[in-house]
Write a protein that binds this DNA or RNA. Sequence first.
DNA 1: ACGAGCGCCTGTCGGC
DNA 2: TGCCGACAGGCGCTCG
Length: 270
Amino acid sequence: MPELPEVETIVRRLRTELIGHKIESADLLWDRTLVTPKPAHFKKNIVGQSISTVDRRAKYIVISLSVDTLIIHLRMSGDILIREESAPIHKHDRLILHLSDGHYLAFSNMRKFGRAWLTPNPDDVLGKLGPEPLSDHFTAEMLYERLQQHKRQIKPLLLDQNFLAGMGNIYTDEALYLAGLHPLAKSDLIKRKQAQILWRSIRKVLEEGIRRNGTSIDWIYRGGDFQNYLQVYGRKDEPCFKCGRPIQKMMVGQRGTHFCPRCQGNEGAD
DNA sequence: ACGAGCGCCTGTCGGC
DNA sequence: TGCCGACAGGCGCTCG
């Protein structure tokens, strides 16, 4: 489910609900949720620490504690819920943190792909990520140069978190449509001008996604509004808003890929 | 270096 | 109605 805008939306909410509270106890309900440390050490290490900041890096939720950093990746079906202590645990809850303010945090994760790390060295987890697409550090020229360094299909490249950190399947399809670029276009053939347009498109769809509190397609992630503004994702066989021809769907790198064959050029350069 | 295929999981949907 | 395969907001691994 969550890509950068959804994680950002969750992080902003958590920031108002978590900061300053102490972790009184913890329950690990699905051992493989935790990458590190070993389940036996986790409880002992985290209990007693207080939450100082909540941030996002790419699709990771980064929670700074008194001593360690708790990092959570929601993967396909994860969500973070804050509930009153009296509220019952849900079926898909995998990790529970009981807080000092009478609430508990639940890491819900239907498909069990989500992961958590408790570590004194967050860089061990986050260190290899590519640039943050909405930061000032990420410029159009930087994108152009990085595109030249690979000879790869543009869509899988944008999904590669070491190339650019935070894009997922929905926002990548939307950005490529906005930029008029075919999903299979080769990265090294993209001209400087096209890279600028792609850069602007990436920032636009992500900013708009955040402004709309993310995309809510089904019951897994609620509260978002961006699904009402999607141009291609989930619109197979429906008319392109620009040219009226049906949106096509194909598989690219094992991911469903939506595009307009007329507005998004060909597989070559554009 | 690159791309295809698979595994990890649970749930939903469409076709027969 | 029931069964069965395809597919789903992600990512890490192997193999040519």
